[in-house]
Design a protein around this nucleic acid. Structure first.
Length: 423
RNA sequence: GGAGAGGUGGCAGAGUGGUCUAAUGCGCCUGACUCGAAAUCAGGUGUGCCGCAAGGUACCGGGGGUUCGAAUCCCUCCCUCUCCGCCA
């Protein structure tokens, strides 16, 4: 949610943000609603004020006396009026809140103009896409792939998009998770093992409810949701809290399985390991002082890039344009790994600065040493990294003529041997 | 899952229908005393919203109700603790 004061004082800034993100929001309607709400609030508070002072007068009167009874009769009318106006105010307020939630975060000035993914800017590139053999195969075409990544058994047991990882496949998943966690630990991120089902309040605080209810799996008996990313439980850790400024910045990481329903995709996008309903991911999250958030965004992105460099995987970094930025982000970089067999870029991390947008919705604040008053923190997050697509890049880029896969040197201590065998 | 107890300001804890915008204690901040500190004394010390301001208003786990008036009564949900049951 944006600052309501910003909307009132600088509606043009909000209008420009909506335009830059290529969204369609009737800002004038929101402004009118805001004015209406404030007028009604003032009215109700005036009535309540009168009610309160009358109540205090009644204290002085003898209970049951004629004056007292007369006052009761008089106050009955006022009470009815207050109730009526309060109900109306409540309805307007609900509409106002809903309207405020339709306003996107303001893009940072460094975000490029653009409407479509094609207009994202290639920020940097690492490694060469030519090093991969032209004969490389998509990972699902590699001989023996189905034994280590068993999609048909997964479909039988659960459904499409829930593979079994078997033998060296399972081991490689575990090696990647542990590598990612250890690297994050070295970079100062405290490891957290969070709940992987969350309640409705947590899903709402990070904006997954009510709009994106369809993306999450729900439990039947309780109103719980399987997390689509560790961002959900992690961000909520400090929900409705005021932190000491000396605690900032807080760096945390968490490994969790992630569950996404992702209705509506098809074709190559969903083949093999490209898009799953359950996948493993290490998430990085920072709570920082507002003055530091862009520095911290860069260092988080740099850490995520470092993981790909250590694994020897070619990648590029995209700076997302306004139209592809996302509703809640001020600035976002996508990290895409080169998948040599499919000959395409696959997103493995999305590093974003939300500034105070998430924090306002989740009410995560710190007590400013300067003013002594609570202020909203800035939140930054990104994957570090998503496992299956990194896995498929390793399989495709490192496939050897003998049908084995060379394990990146950084991963060998975790995997236990230098090659993965499909046999 | 069953039975019982309970959720009040940073913490402890009073308040069971009307100046409660919540006593008191601890903690914290400022000042006095002191060479300095401790002790002591005085004052201050929650969050949100509306308002240019003065000020107003809301919040006693969440939601709803009764009443002229609710922290206090009623309904409902959530959570915590104790005991029992079950179980990695």
């Amino acid at each position: 949610m944006i600052d309501p004061k910003l909307l009132r004082e600088s509606p043009d800034v909000v209008r420009a943000a909506i335009a830059k993100k290529h969204l369609n929001v009737d800002l004038d309607a929101v402004l009118a609603l805001d004015a209406d709400w404030r007028a009604r609030l003032a009215e109700v508070e005036t009535l309540r004020s009168r009610q309160k002072s009358s109540n205090n007068e009644m204290v002085a009167l003898k209970k049951g006396s004629p004056e007292f009874l007369a006052k009761v009769q008089e106050m009955k009318a006022l009470s009815a009026q207050v109730k009526e106006k309060e109900t109306a105010l409540g309805e307007i307020e609900t509409a106002w809140k809903r309207a405020m939630l339709t306003l996107p975060n303001i893009p940072h000035s460094s975000v490029p103009e653009g409407a479509t993914p094609e207009q994202n800017v290639v920020f940097s590139t690492y490694g060469s896409t030519d090093v991969v053999s032209p004969a490389a195969k998509a990972h699902w075409d590699i001989a023996g792939f189905d034994r280590l990544f068993d999609f048909s058994r997964g479909s039988k047991v659960t459904g499409a998009g829930f593979p079994f990882y078997v033998g060296d496949g399972a081991k490689l998943v575990r090696a990647l998770i542990q590598f990612f966690l250890d690297e994050a630990g070295k970079a100062g991120y405290q490891e957290v093992n969070p709940p992987i089902v969350v309640n409705a309040a947590s899903a709402t605080a990070v904006g997954q409810l009510p709009d994106k209810e369809g993306m999450m799996y729900q439990t039947v008996e309780d109103q719980f949701y399987l997390v689509p990313t560790a961002e959900t439980p992690l961000t909520n850790f400090f929900r409705d809290e005021i932190l000491e400024e000396t605690l900032l910045p807080v760096f945390r990481c968490a490994y969790t399985p992630c569950f996404r329903r992702e209705a509506g995709s098809y074709g190559k996008d969903v083949r093999g390991l490209n898009r799953l309903h359950q996948f493993d991911k290490v998430e990085l999250l920072k709570w920082v002082h507002p003055s530091r958030s862009y520095v911290e965004l860069d260092s988080l992105r740099d850490h995520a890039e470092g993981l790909l460099r250590k694994l020897g995987l070619p990648y590029r970094v995209l700076l997302m344009c306004g139209g592809d930025l996302g509703f809640a982000q001020s600035k976002k970089y996508d990290l895409e790994v080169w998948s040599g067999g499919q000959k395409r870029w696959l997103e493995v991390s999305s590093c974003s600065n939300f500034e105070s947008f998430q924090a306002r919705r989740a009410q995560i604040r710190f007590r400013s040493k300067e003013t002594g008053k609570p202020e909203l923190v800035h939140t930054i997050n990104g994957s570090g990294l998503a496992v299956p697509r990194v896995l498929s890049a390793i399989l495709e880029n490192n496939l050897q003529p003998d049908g084995t896969v060379k394990i990146p040197a950084a991963l060998v201590p975790y995997f236990g041997k230098s090659h993965l065998c499909f046999a």
